[in-house]
Nucleic acid binder design. Structure first.
Lengths: 233, 233
DNA sequence: CAGCTGTAGTGGTCGGACCACATCGCTGAT
DNA sequence: ATCAGCGATGTGGTCCGACCACTACAGCTG
């Protein structure tokens, strides 16, 4: 009788599934250290090369973390770890897909902002105001963009849903915003952006979720509409 | 003078960035075939092993597709390709993070259902009804789950935003639903689920976005609340 | 012309070697 | 006895070369 299980897919793919399964079944806890690459390969009856490819793939997915000279560890499996790859989607999307992505962001960002209006603490609100002021105090597009991102990041964080915040972080990834930003700024959109941010801030101060939701939706919607018009060219 | 660029991170990591950049810059179009592993490795001045790890990682991310004996190709970079990995998040999330994930799903699902109410075609509506009927005609949990998933999939597809549909697909991934489903069914929740699905269907037929949004939000919210109560144990 | 076949080229797997780095125990001076 | 310094060990990172499995296509065969 042959005990060799039916080979489905590539060896590396099987290794990925096996490791994922071990984590899903709780046999590997977050933060725990895995056996060495050499041992793992031996356990699953494959070469170290194939096992390394599996580990590399899971590392990129944010499931594992390899520390040179120390070992391989399971990440904390928190939202930030696993959703980091979400940025790749934003980076590689083009044309109509960017609009769809922005539409998703509008939905999530407006919800997050509404939640934040109800839950934001005084400290967090102070941080929001810090970035708002910094944004209005300079004309350097790079700096404005940085504070713009931080502005929304603090708000998303105040919404109390780390998963949602992590997704929004990915949707607002550096290159994504930078690409849209380039042409956007040359239409005097800065002034409008500042007004919109001010409106969001007002709603947060007033602790008015509905106003916050509307302001955030309008804010993202502006960019969305602009991008949509660009595609029609 | 040394021409060797400053080595940042691992060789494999650099290869991943380089290939991603090539795609982002449009030097590699969707569907296009890449040079062979051996050539790519030579071009970037690294070993085939390291290049293979990079390719494997991008394959898992849904950016590349390797066809044994044929070559390596860029995927269509559509929502479905890139967001397939989103299922991993759902598979490996536990406890409070599952609730957060469900909260995100509630937001997106309700929006998608509202959009569907305005845009769904007769054919799509017929498909929805097919799964609704099949779902009510059996008591086999497995089959019910399958039609449940299909029910929501058709609706998400009718919303007209493939990106949103792909994310929802990941959030409703098989194992994710199966895990929640297990205990959920033993509380007579089937009857309630059927009522909720009927409500969603009614809203779609009436082409009433607001009713659809409310019905979908309530539907997901029910599961969300149940899961939240389970964690309190 | 259709079908088969052989062959070159591709990704998939393997094993081994060596390098770079982290860790920890040992050494030896204080 | 304490602790700074150092060296051995083990780990992931990289490279190489070989071979296997599969695809694609040119060329042959009927």
């Amino acid at each position: 009788m042959d005990e060799t299980v039916p080979q489905k897919g590539t060896v590396t793919q099987r290794a990925i599934e096996r490791i994922k399964a071990m984590i899903a079944e709780g046999r590997l806890e977050p933060g725990q250290r895995l056996p060495t690459e050499r041992d793992l390969a031996a356990q699953l009856g494959m070469s170290r090369s194939s096992m390394r490819e599996a580990i590399r793939a899971l590392t990129v997915l944010g499931v594992l973390e390899a520390r040179h000279g120390s070992g391989i560890y399971v990440t904390q499996l928190e939202a930030g770890d696993l959703l980091e790859t979400f940025g790749v989607v934003a980076d590689l999307s083009r044309g109509p897909q960017l609009v769809e992505l922005l539409e998703v962001r509008r939905v999530l960002e407006s919800t997050a902002t509404a939640l934040a209006a109800a839950r934001i603490t005084a400290d967090q609100l102070a941080e929001v105001e810090k970035h708002l002021a910094a944004m209005n105090a300079t004309d350097d597009p790079e700096e404005i963009l940085a504070h713009d991102l931080a502005f929304h990041r603090v708000i998303a964080g105040a919404a109390g849903n780390d998963t949602m915040a992590a997704i929004l972080e990915g949707l607002s990834s550096r290159t994504f915003r930078a690409r849209v930003w380039r042409g956007y700024e040359e239409e005097g959109a800065f002034a409008r952006t500042r007004r919109e941010h001010a409106a969001i801030h007002r709603a947060l101060v007033a602790r008015d979720p509905e106003a916050a939701r509307a302001a955030a939706a309008a804010h993202v919607g502006e960019v969305e509409e602009w991008l949509r018009s660009q595609l029609g060219t």
